[in-house]
């Protein structure tokens, strides 16, 4: 039986990456992000691009879907590219006109920076958002951060809050729709008028929604107390995450990759211009 959590960006699947221990996935994406930032030469970037492509293929998720996730960041990507193109100085001018000077270093740098952003998004999509449910992420974070409990960081409380928030998102969406319907039936109009009028029109929705959320919170707290919840202490979990050999194999591959990038930076520094 598969579970279908439709919110978030999770894409249903059963690939190797989908089935990795979520804790390992969090660590892997951190290491991979470090590797992306360490890459300085074109050779290192070729290695990163190829490996990312391999990961995308492994997940079985359509590359178009991953490209779509970059849409909201398009402005930032273009902006950084332009800045690098026009303001990077170097030794090999390519184009000069009045105050505009474009150097070869600028072009290469702009390309690499764009590539770096694209790789970052791809990595987090492939390892986290697209292949791991928000619930699994929450559980993994709680276990990864559990050593911090000794420092009195409220790790359990944070994760319980996340769990409950995720659980109530669909309920509250449902409730919002009901309230909108009810007020529309009383002639409320949310689509006409200026900004202030529209803002005012939200009051009959937001107030009942807040009151209902508080009521639910109150009832849930009572129910949790009734089920012997007393906080994180002395609590066990039914599903504890257990890492399997393949999790470790994957982890070491990523470590090797990172080491490879450092070596390429040192021994094949082709166009090492990124600062």
């Amino acid at each position: 039986m598969k579970s279908d959590i439709t919110f978030g960006q999770y894409v249903e699947g059963n690939s190797v990456i989908h089935r990795l221990d979520p804790r390992v996935k969090i660590v892997i994406s951190l290491v991979y992000i470090v590797a992306i930032f360490l890459a300085k030469s074109v050779t290192a970037f070729i290695l990163l691009t190829v490996s990312s492509a391999v990961f995308v293929v492994m997940t079985g998720i359509s590359p178009r879907l991953i490209l779509r996730s970059m849409k909201p960041l398009l402005f930032i990507i273009i902006f950084t590219a332009v800045i690098n193109l026009f303001f990077m100085t170097g030794e090999n001018p390519v184009f000069e006109w009045r105050f505009i000077h474009i150097y070869r270093e600028g072009i290469i740098n702009a390309c690499l920076i764009v590539l770096r952003i694209v790789l970052l998004i791809t990595a987090t999509s492939v390892f986290l958002t697209y292949t791991t449910t928000p619930l699994a992420l929450t559980d993994a974070l709680e276990q990864l951060l559990s050593p911090l409990k000794k420092l009195h960081v409220p790790v359990h409380e944070f994760s319980m809050m996340m769990t409950i928030a995720l659980r109530f998102i669909p309920t509250l969406i449902d409730e919002t729709q009901k309230i909108i319907n009810a007020q529309t039936a009383r002639g409320a109009d949310f689509t006409s008028g200026g900004l202030i009028k529209r803002g005012k029109a939200l009051v009959p929705i937001l107030i009942p929604l807040f009151i209902s959320a508080f009521r639910r919170a109150d009832e849930l707290a009572t129910a949790m107390e009734c089920r012997c919840y007393t906080g994180g202490e002395g609590r066990t979990r039914m599903n504890t995450l257990k890492s399997k050999p393949k999790d470790w194999v994957f982890f070491f591959c990523i470590l090797l990759l990172t080491a490879g990038i450092v070596l390429l930076n040192i021994f094949f520094p082709l166009y090492t211009v990124l600062k």
Partner: peptide
């Protein structure tokens, strides 16, 4: 709805 804590 108000007594179920976990999603699954």
């Amino acid at each position: 709805d108000n007594q179920i804590v976990a999603t699954i």
